[in-house]
Simulated scan of single mutants.
Amino acid sequence: MKDGYEIAVVHGDGIGPEVCGAAIEVLNAALDPGVLRFAEYPAGAGHFLATGESLPEATVQACGAADAILHGAAGLPGAVHPDGTEAGVDFSLKLRFGLDLYANIRPIRLYEGVESALAGIAPGGIDYVILRENSEGLYAARGAGSLLRGDVAVDTLVQTREGIERIVRKAFELARLSDGAPEDGVRRVTCCDKANVLRSYAFFRAVFDRIATEFPDIEAEHAIVDAMSMYLVQRPGHYNVIVTENMFGDILSDLAAATIGGLGMAPSAEVGESNGLFQPSHGSAPDIAGQGIANPYGMVLSAASMLDWLGHRHDDARLLDAAARIRRATEEALASGCLTTDLKGSATTRAVTDILCRALAA
């Protein structure tokens, strides 16, 4: 256990500063002063528009040296590189690859008080994790693809045995620590791929099958990604942990978020062996920035994931207890009807922050 932890904060763009600020207030309410020490650093689309640089080297170095990283959101209309790609995403992508944040953990849970887009789903009826391989796959081609004479564009999907092995083992470890799928209580890992068409995904599945033999207590199964997009709507209660390639995980997690109230309810943790980045799955929503109506729950739950990761990493019961209390406060606030406009309520960002902080102080 350490006396205190250095947290690098990159607020980002749009509603990023609003939800990030809310999460910091909640963290401070859950812990004694000095346990977490926050330092702010610039990055993102706004910084790019102002300076021509989306991710300063000083920010990269500070994030690498910090105990953990909190990020709000990134991206603004018109903030693009000459090749047409968004400048705002540089922060997350460069840190993923530079710090080897290979596991993107995206919990999908339907809370009491939140209405699902799916009919007839009770609170707790959706409760699974999408584990997205974060350092390889199609997104590894970022900045390295080819555009030939303005007529042909090529990006390469890369998957390595080592990369697949470690993300699959992580999936089975998460399943082993879970309570199983809501539908039947079975601890299972679902490999989501396109093995019937592409060799790269057939390779992913073959490695998955071999690693699965190391976990005989966990059920292992397969799903083709296009079918999976249907299954997550038809029978979400069947799933416990889903492991998949980078791009598939990105797409499926947005679909999944729609079943639990939207992206504002979707936390995310991106972790490696030594570093961790914690941010909500949603974008910067510049159309509502500054209005005080942004949903901070996804950011707050991401901050709770940060405490869990740090607490386990440093054997710090203070952080683990604070994470549990933040989640309980979130559950109580949602169940009481403290819902933001995206959840068909009228609560402001300030109102959500205040009710969470009051619960933590009680």
Rank of each mutant, 00 (worst) to 15 (best):
P280S: 07
A50M: 01
L110M: 02
G264D: 05
G78L: 13
S135A: 11
D254Y: 01
A153W: 10
G298E: 07
I293V: 15
V197D: 00
E86L: 13
A62R: 12
G72I: 10
Y128R: 01
A347K: 03
A8M: 11
K94E: 14
H47P: 04
L319T: 06
G52L: 09
A62M: 08
G261N: 12
A103E: 04
S268F: 05
L255I: 13
E270P: 04
D287F: 07
A359S: 15
R187G: 03
G261M: 08
I108R: 02
F215R: 12
A140Y: 12
R161L: 10
R327I: 12
A8S: 13
I288T: 05
L147R: 11
D3P: 08
G16Y: 00
E173F: 07
V152Q: 14
A256M: 03
G21K: 04
H71T: 13
A294C: 10
S200E: 13
I105P: 03
R96G: 06
Y231L: 14
S92D: 08
L255K: 12
I15V: 07
P33R: 02
R358S: 14
G180K: 01
I242A: 08
A22K: 01
P42K: 07
D127V: 08
R199W: 12
I7A: 00
R142A: 11
S200Y: 07
E332S: 12
T51W: 00
A322S: 03
F208T: 15
F278Q: 06
R325F: 10
A87S: 09
G137C: 04
E53M: 05
I24H: 01
G264L: 14
I130Y: 03
G180I: 14
N134Q: 09
V197W: 00
T348M: 09
G75D: 00
L27G: 00
S146F: 08
L31T: 05
G298Y: 03
P123A: 01
L110F: 03
P286V: 13
E270I: 13
R106K: 05
M247F: 09
G298D: 04
L101R: 02
A361P: 08
A23V: 07
G337P: 02
P56H: 03
F208P: 14
M228Q: 14
E115G: 10
S178W: 02
S284N: 08
P42G: 03
G283I: 13
C191N: 11
F91V: 06
G262S: 14
R313Q: 11
R325M: 13
L70M: 10
E136R: 06
A324N: 13
Q291T: 11
G98D: 09
A206D: 15
L157S: 12
G120R: 03
G180N: 08
P56F: 03
L27R: 00
G46I: 02
R205K: 15
T340Y: 12
